[in-house]
């Protein structure tokens, strides 16, 4: 099991949720995981219903079995100051640089450098050891940028190689790439059973593979339960409306006569069944497309009550059950 788990996905697929659930799932049996956020959206804080996360590793959840989940929102500016402090003991000069806009320049404007700092911080957490020699974190889970940008984000070496040909940033990029391209890392993609996210997932995987980044698994999120299967949907189409009206009536939902309560339910219920059938067929196609990617597939259910902390634990349990942790 790779120690750096990177979670990406198209916008709207719930990648932050999946990353958080994975961090919980991996914090099994006394293990310690770090969940990192790199886009400054404070999605983790919202998910765990806590205040905005500072640039500081802090415990945000306890997993069943005594494991712990820590969280960190990486701020590229602070990461750079951190880094300067570590290597150059800059102290107050760092603040002066910030005033001049140099930090802003280096982190926001100079492309690639920002990403080196973000991935670098995550890699540092992966490799960090305690005095006892044990790793500080058993796993680091990264809530990464969306699928469309993930390869560029992780492939910092290419980005930076053309820019910083020598110097510490260059060395840093090299070190980061060694971790990212090793089996120590796995990049997972979150998708929905819809055409656009599935297409983007397929494209994303091709890009990751071309960049020789280790692709992990595909997680299909928000999967709706199968209420009626294809054969049953066929039977629904072949059944007389009056039979449904009578059965609904028998179940206590009103009269089956024309205009009766049960009778008036039949059309809208059949219309909903048609919509379901259409979606079912589409989902079926998309599952087949995902199946051809040749990667392990996991499915997480849509939570009827919406996403909350309890739901997060439920998804973590589901991931654990499916052998994702």
């Amino acid at each position: 099991m790779s120690r750096l788990q990177v979670v990406s996905g198209k916008g709207g697929t719930g990648k932050t949720t999946v990353a958080a659930a994975l961090a919980l799932a991996l914090a099994d049996e006394g293990k310690r995981t770090l969940l990192v956020e790199v886009e400054g959206r404070q999605g983790i804080a919202q998910l765990f219903e806590t205040e905005a996360l500072p640039y500081e590793e802090r415990k945000i959840a306890v997993a069943p079995g005594g494991g712990e989940v820590y969280a960190l929102a990486i701020d590229p500016e602070l990461a750079l100051l951190d880094y300067l402090q570590m290597f150059y003991k800059l102290g107050g000069a760092g603040r002066a640089l910030k005033k001049l806009g140099a930090i802003d320049f280096a982190t926001t404007i100079a492309p690639g450098l920002r990403d080196v700092l973000l991935t670098g911080k995550a890699c540092e957490a992966v490799r960090r050891k305690e005095k006892s020699g044990r790793f500080a974190y058993d796993y680091v889970v990264m809530d990464a940028p969306p699928t469309g940008r993930i390869t560029r984000f992780l492939n910092v070496n290419d980005e930076v190689a053309g820019l910083a040909k020598i110097g510490p940033i260059h060395n840093q990029a090299q070190a980061v790439m060694r971790v990212l391209k090793s089996p120590e890392t796995a990049v997972h993609l979150v998708t929905l059973l819809e055409e656009m996210p599935v297409q983007e997932t397929a494209d994303g995987i091709a890009e990751l593979r071309a960049a020789k980044l280790p692709v992990g698994r595909v997680i299909v999120n928000m999967v709706r339960p199968e209420v009626l299967d294809a054969a049953e949907l066929e039977l629904v189409r072949g059944t007389a409306r009056s039979s449904f009206a009578q059965t609904l009536s028998a179940a206590g939902l009103g009269g089956a006569r024309r205009g009766g309560h049960a009778e008036r339910l039949v059309d809208p219920l059949l219309a909903q069944a048609e919509e379901y059938a259409e979606r079912y067929a589409l989902e079926h196609e998309q599952r087949a497309v995902l199946g051809e990617l040749g990667l392990p597939l996991h499915e997480l259910p849509l939570l009827a009550e919406g996403m909350d902390l309890a739901g997060l634990y439920q998804l973590a349990k589901e991931l654990r059950k499916q052998g994702m942790s």
């Binding site: 059944t239 009056s242 009269g255 089956a256």
Partner: peptide, 26 residues
């Protein structure tokens, strides 16, 4: 509940055993 339907209920209205199952699905 509303009063059960009595119109045309001579004989079994749902002789096909799958209809209740399908209706439950709906």
């Amino acid at each position: 509940r509303n009063s059960p339907d009595t119109d045309g209920s001579s004989g079994s209205p749902t002789s096909d055993p799958t209809v209740p199952q399908l209706t439950a699905g709906l």
